[in-house]
């Protein structure tokens, strides 16, 4: 789902690079606590910190926390293409279709170019969530309608035998 290559291709320059790369390295070795410590170390800008923290949490399998981390990072760097893309992916995995759509739209608005397959997955997720919501509304309507019909029958039939 989340490609290591994408992360390794991230351009993190200068003094930041060391802490960032160490965080990625610790994540790759399953030392998630250390990865977060490197991510939080001084010298990393907020976007790099968010990327490194997101990466550690998502690789650890704590996807809800990873998504929250990505969103925190996006508050600081709202046009961060990589974080936006990852936020869309993770939101889809968590069946959080509305958030996936919201991040996709932000991504597109900021000039990003999500691929067609991702767009289709988000659209399908949103449609599916909307169908469930519509089904719930329908169920409520049918229930209320049928219960009202029952009450009407009661009222009519209680008036006594013809």
């Amino acid at each position: 789902m989340i490609s290591v290559c994408v992360v390794l291709c991230l351009g993190v320059a200068g003094a930041q690079g060391n802490a960032f790369e160490r965080s990625l390295e610790a994540t790759a070795q399953g030392r998630y606590g250390e990865a977060l410590r490197w991510a939080d170390s001084e010298g990393l800008d907020s976007a790099s910190r968010a990327q490194a923290r997101f990466w550690a949490l998502s690789r650890a399998g704590l996807l809800d926390l990873a998504l929250a981390e990505a969103e925190l990072g996006l508050e600081e760097a709202p046009r961060d293409d990589w974080l936006l893309g990852q936020a869309v992916e993770v939101a889809l995995i968590l069946h959080d279709d509305r958030r996936a759509e919201q991040h996709l739209l932000t991504w597109e608005a900021s000039g990003g170019a999500p691929d067609a397959e991702l767009r289709a997955r988000v659209a399908s997720g949103v449609r599916s969530a909307e169908r469930v919501r519509a089904g719930s509304r329908r169920a409520m309507g049918v229930s209320v309608g049928l219960l009202a019909a029952c009450v009407a029958c009661f009222a009519a039939w209680l008036r006594g035998p013809r």
Binding site: V132, G135, S136, R138, M140, S143, L146, L147
Partner: peptide, 15 residues
């Protein structure tokens, strides 16, 4: 998601 619909969905189906 299905679990969220248990109350109204099962009532509508039952009716």
């Amino acid at each position: 998601r299905a679990a969220m619909q248990i109350q109204w969905g099962s009532l509508a189906c039952s009716l």
